[in-house]
Design a protein around this nucleic acid. Structure first.
Length: 741
DNA sequence: GTAGGGTTAG
């Protein structure tokens, strides 16, 4: 096929006055010749040359066909420019139906799909043309793009009135539209009304179900489609079906689909090959994936990223890294895949290392997904300074605070101990979805602002945002940390009946925690007995935790037994029970339990506290001698302890009583607790009035809690400690938890 | 004398 090189002069039809004998002379010939030239254009520059000639010769104004051809190419071709196309459109004296439809079509898939509706209104008022069967699919596409079901329904009605409601193209667009708006019922209704369903009708249904979280229904439909003889599956069908297999992790069916593709000679393009690859990786069959990957003749970044993700699913980070390294053109999506793999598998430090490496890359721009994953990693490790840096990066680069970014910022600030900043972000946005509200409620919960969290919960409903399961978890958590028993109980009762949310295991655990913490142990047990689902380890864990607070030995033994039946290697449960035994003076049981732990090789997770100084996270283990500054830290610790004792501090020996054997003596020795070391390091490395922020992996111990209160008073420093469950703000000798934790 | 709907990864 002939194509232009930019240096070649264009042979254009001349105006009759200047025509040479070889050039076409009649209008009809000029029109055909111009159309064939337009068809051969490969860039906007060539198109503009033809445009200029058409203006000069007047063809643009006289010949609707070549004019609409010029316009269609300028609006829809791979080198299209919508702005330019609109200018061309304005020059056409009397656009015909085709031209109007093309403009609507171009807008529908452009940056502002709603404009196509405005164009449609112009067409109805300014031209003699009404919408036809071609118009509706474009308009409906625009409705899908903006996810407006009311618009979709209006167009549906208009299509019926215009007698094209039964057109299969119109119906298929409607199916797609209703799915994008989440109106699955209407989509199904349209589908059943189509007399002669074609492959696209089926595909729209299959992919609709896959994308709206019902992959099982998609597979069912595919089986039904297979049994109907008149429609043959296409490669698009296969992409949808494979995606359903990936989502349901149905490797067996996935493999059958791959065989089907071979046997039925379905054409395998890159998209379909990638979908096959995705199915293999999501179903955990990395061998099949690797075989396919090696055999693929063409690969794009989707291929590479799918492979990377496949290794990340298996937590083979080295292999995942290897894939990233081998990528010919690394893009932000691939980097994001590695960062979020680490972040979501509890490896936030590794995620942050990858993020730092990414920042050194040239020509790769961070996007919202990068920021969300990294903020989440910051939240996990308490990297407030990096979190702040990302926030200013967002402001500096004018990155839009969408719901994800907003929630991630609120979550990061809350988990890093800066509740005020979290509140600021929350108030700064105009629109909030359920995740934004839930993040704020969760933040208030972990900082012990129970009543405020409940207020938020009601404000959220005033704003017409429906709570979800996460919202309830956070609300119950808030009740638990603030002892709001009645409120939690009543909300739990309403959860299903008024809010339509079926309580899950974590909600039951929360309520057990609320009841147990406040001392209603019997009530908590009755609550567990009445559960409609089998109680999980976290339910028993909540009861066990309450037994420790209220020193209920017999109940603790029961809860612990049940917990260990479900999670035999739960080190926390062993330690908790042993501490309860110790508190009750049952030393024989203690040593038995500890012996059992030694024999089974079960180790207590070592206490670890971290503190961020100038963007670097410093970690301290109990009795740590690893930190380069440890001598100074211990020096400071001695000085602090002396000063505290002078002011009436007495170590809480009940905490020491839990020491079991020699080896643990060192770790458990009160003065060596990791949170004390981290706080002392904070005292040395920062100046007042800067708050000292410490993050501990376990619960803060009672003695450390008292010490932190005293330090906050005697040294006039705000100390903020995040433990496994919540925050403690120490100020002027008081803690925000009111010693209730 | 032009045309239209459905496609994977984060």
């Amino acid at each position: 096929m002939a194509s232009f090189s930019t240096s070649q002069p264009l042979s254009l039809p001349r105006h009759p006055t200047f025509s040479n004998p070889k050039q076409p002379t009649t209008n009809n010939e000029r029109s055909r010749h111009t159309i064939s030239l337009i068809d051969r254009c490969s860039n906007l520059r060539q198109l503009k040359q033809i445009h200029a000639q058409m203006v000069r010769t007047g063809l643009l104004f006289d010949d609707p066909y070549s004019a609409s051809k010029l316009f269609a190419i300028s609006a829809l071709s791979p080198f299209a420019s919508l702005d330019y196309a609109c200018k061309v459109f304005d020059q056409i004296p009397q656009p015909n139906s085709f031209t109007w439809n093309t403009l609507i079509r171009a807008h529908a898939s452009g940056p502002d799909p709603a404009r196509s509706i405005l164009v449609f209104l112009d067409m109805v008022s300014d031209s003699q043309f009404g919408p036809n069967k071609y118009t509706f699919p474009f308009l409906i596409k625009a409705a899908s793009e903006v996810s407006s079901s009311s618009l979709g329904r209006s167009l549906h009605g208009m299509a019926i009135k215009s007698s094209v409601g039964c057109d299969v193209f119109v119906a298929n667009s409607l199916i797609h539209c209703y799915f994008s708006c989440g109106d699955l019922d209407s989509a199904c209704k349209v589908f059943t009304t189509i007399q002669e369903k074609d492959v696209v009708s089926w595909n729209s249904m299959i992919t609709g179900f896959v994308q709206k979280g019902s992959p099982d229904k998609a597979l069912e439909l595919f089986k039904k489609m297979e049994s109907e003889e008149d429609v043959k599956a296409s490669h698009v069908t296969m992409v949808g079906v494979l995606s359903a297999c990936a989502k349901t992790q149905n490797l067996e069916f996935g493999k059958r689909v791959c065989r089907y593709i071979e046997e039925n000679r379905v054409s395998v393009n890159l998209t379909l090959a990638n979908a096959m690859l995705d199915m293999y990786t999501k179903c955990g069959s990395i061998e099949d994936a690797k075989r396919l990957f090696d055999a693929m003749e063409e690969r794009d970044n989707v291929t590479w990223t799918t492979m990377l993700d496949g290794y990340a699913i298996l937590e083979d980070y080295e292999a995942a890294r290897e894939v990233l390294n081998s990528m010919p053109k690394k893009d932000i999506v691939a980097w994001n895949a590695l960062i979020s793999a680490y972040e979501q598998n509890g490896k936030p430090n590794e995620a942050l290392l990858v993020f730092h490496e990414l920042q050194l890359q040239k020509n790769i721009k961070l996007n919202q997904i990068t920021l969300v994953s990294t903020l989440s990693a910051c939240a996990q490790v308490g990297a407030l300074e990096l979190g702040r840096w990302i926030h200013s990066y967002i402001k500096k680069h004018g990155i839009r605070l969408n719901f994800y970014v907003t929630s991630a910022l609120i979550h990061m600030y809350s988990k890093c101990g800066d509740l005020e900043k979290a509140r600021e972000v929350f108030s700064s946005v105009e629109k909030r979805d359920v995740f934004v509200w839930s993040a704020m409620i969760g933040g208030l919960a972990m900082h012990g602002c129970g009543n405020e969290a409940l207020d938020m919960f009601y404000k959220m409903q005033e704003a017409n945002v429906k709570p979800n399961g996460v919202t309830f978890t956070n609300v119950f958590c808030a009740c638990s940390h603030s002892g709001l028993v009645d409120e939690a109980e009543s909300l739990f009762r309403d959860m299903e009946s008024s809010y339509g949310i079926v309580p899950e295991d974590k909600h039951y655990a929360c309520i057990v925690d609320v009841l147990g913490r406040s001392g209603y142990l019997e009530k908590a047990v009755k609550f567990i007995e009445a559960m409609p689902i089998p109680p999980s380890a976290s339910v028993w864990g909540a009861l066990l935790g309450a037994c420790k607070i209220h020193a209920n030995l017999s109940l603790a033994e029961m809860a612990c037994t049940r917990l260990l039946e479900l999670e035999p290697r739960n080190d926390g449960a062993h330690v908790l029970l042993s501490n309860i035994y110790a508190k009750s003076g049952k030393w024989e049981s203690v040593s038995e339990l500890r012996k059992h732990m030694r024999v089974t090789g079960l180790k207590k997770e070592p206490g670890c506290s971290s503190i961020e100084i100038d963007g670097t996270i410093h970690e301290f283990l109990s009795g740590d001698n690893e930190h380069p500054m440890c001598e100074k830290v211990y020096g400071k610790l001695n000085e602090v302890m002396e000063r505290l004792k002078e002011n009436g501090y007495e170590p809480e020996m009940s905490q020491v009583l839990q020491i079991i054997d020699e080896e643990e003596m060192k770790e458990q020795s009160l003065n060596l607790h990791s949170e004390k070391l981290a706080i002392c390091y904070g005292l040395i490395s920062t100046e007042a009035p800067k708050a000292i922020r410490v993050i501990k992996n376990l619960r803060v111990c009672g003695d450390c809690h008292s010490v932190a209160k005293l330090i906050s008073q005697l040294y006039d420093r705000e100390i903020i400690v995040r433990d496994r469950y919540r925050f403690h703000h120490f100020r002027n000798g008081q803690c925000s938890c009111n010693d209730f934790w």
